[in-house]
Simulated assay, not measured.
Amino acid sequence: MKICVFGAGAIGGYMGVKLADAGADVSLVARGPHLAAMQANGLRLIEESGETTVQVTASDDPSELGPQDYIIVTLKAHSVPPVVEKMQPLIGPNTTIVSGVNGVPWWYFHKLGGDLEATRLASVDPGDAQWNGFGPDNVLGCVVYPAAEVIEPGVIKHIEGNRFSLGEPDGSKSERAMALSKALSAAGLKAPVRPRIRDEIWVKLWGNLSFNPISALTHATLDVLCTDPGTRAVARGMMVEAQEIAETLGVKFPIDVDRRIDGGAAVGAHRTSMWQDLDQGRPMEIDALVASVQELGHLTNTPTPTIDTVLALIQLRARSAGLY
Rank of each mutant, 00 (worst) to 15 (best):
L289F: 03
R282T: 12
A269L: 06
A246K: 04
G268K: 06
A235G: 09
A242D: 08
G268L: 08
R260Q: 14
E241V: 12
T231A: 05
F253D: 10
D228R: 09
G250D: 11
V290L: 15
L278S: 09
Q243Y: 06
A235W: 02
D279L: 15
V234Q: 10
P283M: 03
V234C: 05
K252C: 11
A291G: 03
D258N: 15
R236C: 05
M238Y: 11
T272Q: 07
L249G: 06
V293F: 01
Q280T: 11
G237W: 08
D228W: 03
P283V: 02
T227K: 14
H270C: 02
G264E: 01
Q243C: 08
A269Q: 14
G237A: 14
L289A: 03
M238V: 09
Q294K: 14
S292L: 01
V234W: 12
R260W: 08
G264L: 00
L278A: 14
M274V: 08
Q276K: 14
A265K: 15
Q243V: 09
P283T: 03
R260E: 11
E295C: 02
L278H: 14
V290K: 00
G250Q: 11
I255Q: 09
A269E: 15
A269K: 15
I261N: 04
G230K: 10
G264K: 00
I245P: 06
G268D: 07
I261G: 02
M284D: 08
T248F: 01
P229F: 07
K252R: 13
D279W: 02
G237F: 07
L296C: 02
T248C: 09
L289I: 15
R259F: 10
I286N: 03
L289E: 07
D262C: 00
G281D: 14
G230H: 13
Q276L: 14
A266I: 03
Q280S: 11
V240T: 13
E244K: 14
K252N: 11
E244S: 12
G237V: 05
A242H: 04
S273M: 04
M239R: 09
T231M: 10
Q280L: 12
P283E: 09
R236P: 03
P229D: 11
Q276R: 15
G264M: 04
E241D: 12
L296S: 01
G250Y: 05
G264C: 12
L278V: 07
T227F: 04
S292H: 01
D262S: 12
E285L: 03
K252E: 13
A246F: 06
E295R: 00
A233T: 05
H270I: 02
A291K: 10
V234M: 13
E241Y: 09
P229Y: 09
L289K: 00
S292I: 01
I286G: 03
T248S: 12
G230D: 06
F253P: 02
L249C: 07
G263I: 06
P283Q: 13
M274N: 05
